[in-house]
Amino acid sequence: MTVDQAVLDWLNTDPDWDLPETVTDGPLAADVTAPSAAALASASQAEREEIMFEYARAEVARSVGLTPAALDTERTLVSVGVGSMLGCELQYRLRDALGVAPELKEILMAKDTHALAGMLLALLGYGG
C-alpha cells in the first residue's frame, strides 16, 4: 500500500487551516444575561419580542464567537456556524437561563435568529 507522503504528513501535523475568526468589533460577551420572568411578564408583546430577540442574538453570537452586532441574524443558525455540538450547547444554555428550550433539531433548522426568539417566546406561553 503506497500513500502520498503529503497525506501522511497531514495526518500527523496541525496545518492550522481553520484559523479562529477575527471579525469582531468589540469584546466578546463573557456573560449573557437572560430576561427575567418578571421582566417578560410586565412587558408588552412588542417589547417581549424585542427583549427575547436581543437575548437570542447574544446567545447565538457567543456560541459562534462573535459579538452580537457582528452576527447576521437573518441567516439560518447552521449557516452562521451553529453545528450539531454548538447547537446542543446552545440548547443547554437556553434551558439553564429560561427553563425551556426547543428540541435540538428545531434549533438546527431555525430559519434565523428571529425564529429562534419566536420559538422561545412560544415555549414560555407568549406565542403571537
Binding site: 481553520d18 446542543c88 450547547e89
Partner: peptide, 16 residues
C-alpha cells in the same frame, strides 16, 4: 466528522 470542541462545549454537551 467534527472539529474537536472547546472544553466548555464538551462539558455542556456531555450532559446530553
Amino acid at each position: 466528522v467534527e472539529k474537536v470542541p472547546s472544553a466548555e462545549t464538551a462539558r455542556v454537551c456531555t450532559q446530553a
